[in-house]
């Protein structure tokens, strides 16, 4: 929808609400107002990367050149009770993490 490299010139409060929903953040009204302004500033500053000619330049996702495959072998893993020990609502007798009802 938005053609590169032209980028939305301003960030609206609706954008911030959309991003917050994507990021699973329930922001307060003050946070929404603050982030709208601050993120717009930061994005305006970051806009300068558009000036760089990157035609034909590959992207760097990470800097390592080494291959890191290994054999897919069974290894010991965390015992269930230790895995549950930090859960906010564990069900140790069932060996499960309890969450609010998902299907209503």
């Amino acid at each position: 929808m938005i053609a590169s490299p032209a980028v939305a010139p301003t960030l609206t409060s609706a954008d911030v609400e959309r991003i917050a929903a994507l990021a699973h953040l329930e922001l307060t009204a003050e946070e929404k107002a603050l982030f709208t302004r601050q993120l717009a500033d930061i994005l305006a500053y970051a806009e300068q990367v558009q000036a760089v000619d990157t035609s034909g330049v590959p992207a760097t996702a990470h800097v390592l050149a080494e291959r890191t495959e290994r054999e897919d072998e069974l290894q010991p893993s965390l015992p269930r009770e230790e895995a549950l020990a930090n859960a906010p609502d564990p069900a140790p007798e069932a060996g499960l993490f309890r969450v609010p009802r998902v299907i209503t």
Partner: peptide
């Protein structure tokens, strides 16, 4: 990373990272 901005920001930044 969101749809419509990925190429203009994230991918672009990774390319400048290469440079």
């Amino acid at each position: 990373l969101s749809a419509g901005y990925y190429d203009a920001y994230y991918l672009k930044a990774q390319q400048v990272r290469t440079l």
